[in-house]
Simulated scan of single mutants.
Amino acid sequence: MKKLLFLVFILIFSSLFAFKVIMVTDVGGLGDGSFMDGTWSGIVRACQEYGIEYEVIQSKEQSDYISNLSKAAESADVVFAVGFLMSDAFYKVAEQYPETYFVGIDFHQEKDLPNVMTFTFKEQEGSFLTGYLAAGMTKTGKVAIIGGIPIPPVKRYEIGFRTGVKVYNSIHNTNVEVKVVYANSFTDPKKGKELTQALISEGVDIIQQACGGTALGIIEAIKEENLKNVTSKELKELIDYMYLNGGYYMLGGDVEQEWQAPGHILASAIKRVDNASYMGVVKAFTGDWHPGNIELGLKEDGEGISRMPFTKGLVPNDLIYELEYLISLVKRGEFKIPETEDELNALRVKIQF
């Protein structure tokens, strides 16, 4: 009888003090295989680990942001807003619900609010590595980056990628060209495919994505181009062909995207949004809450390059070594990767292997 009463007490206590997390997406929504999905995976991981209730509210239009965030704040202990475009709505709602924790992913702390924690990233550090890799792997001497909307995080992606190519050119005395285009959308695969086809027609063979769900069209175009030469669906035959002849590659963004198109995605610039969202949940739930902004880069394992699970054998050992050495320089503070156009223009490469 005592045991039964104890169990009833626990159930009542749990129901009275249940903890809930709600993530509100921007218009990109889940299913992008990149930024949104990565953030959501970190929330799910933390909530399942700690037995926390969790939910997602997806925004269809920017006009949904305030209403969706308000709805979330009325029933959740922690509200996540994911995406730079949500920042204005985020702070308006956070001020209205001071008893609710708010976590912003991908934008800075704009107001000093005790219930707000934000996470930003040194995107330039991850894309620097894929830019360097692209410069070392291109067969045509032309690479590109397709951005979504030129907001600050995406511009840092662009600057980092161009820096990687610039550093490779300086060290190896090459002249790899970088093309930069913007889709002006994070949700338009059709536009991503059209831009990719146009870039391929101009001689580009490696394309970095920084455009969220729009990149699904990049993947489609890359696969179609490669399968003109390799009709087999076997990964081994594709990799063998690429090793001997080269081909076309996308470079993923935010998460390890190689699994979406094995062999067609060379590597990914990792942006550990999953670690940030996981950290946000845990800090709120355990009482380790500290308002303010947390910036994550290579040193904090918030940025990096993927393991290249399908394509690492295509990359020369010397190039792998150079990437590892460059990572060590950044982590030790001996090389700062530019994050603005002015810093990139002023960069003088003094690295030697």
Rank of each mutant, 00 (worst) to 15 (best):
E303A: 11
I171W: 08
A221I: 13
K193E: 12
G104H: 10
V281C: 00
D240Q: 09
A73H: 04
P189D: 11
K283E: 08
K331Y: 08
T231L: 12
K233I: 03
K236I: 07
I320A: 09
N293D: 03
D64E: 14
G212F: 12
G246H: 05
A72E: 11
Q257P: 01
E341D: 14
G51P: 06
A73Q: 04
G38Y: 09
S201R: 08
T340G: 11
P114W: 08
I43P: 00
E95W: 10
V176H: 05
V165L: 10
D37S: 02
E194D: 07
S75Q: 10
E125A: 10
P338F: 02
A72Q: 08
I52E: 03
G33D: 07
G51M: 09
Q352F: 11
I218E: 06
G280I: 14
F119H: 08
P189V: 15
E61H: 10
A210C: 08
T130N: 12
K228S: 05
G126N: 09
D205N: 14
S75I: 15
V116E: 04
G160Y: 06
V349Q: 11
M36R: 05
G31W: 10
S201G: 13
H290D: 10
I12Q: 01
E295R: 10
V230F: 01
T174P: 00
S201M: 06
G287R: 01
K166L: 06
P150Y: 03
G104P: 05
F19T: 11
V255P: 00
V281H: 00
T100F: 03
A261V: 12
Y101V: 07
M86V: 11
G126K: 11
A210I: 00
L216T: 07
E194S: 05
E224D: 11
A346D: 15
K228L: 05
Y325L: 12
G126A: 15
W289K: 06
L251T: 14
V154M: 13
N184I: 10
D64R: 15
G28S: 12
G136I: 12
V273T: 09
S63I: 02
L199W: 13
P309F: 04
L129W: 04
A210S: 09
E225S: 07
G192Q: 03
L113T: 01
Q62R: 08
I146G: 08
S127N: 14
K191W: 15
G252E: 02
N229R: 15
V315Q: 07
T231A: 02
G192C: 05
P316C: 05
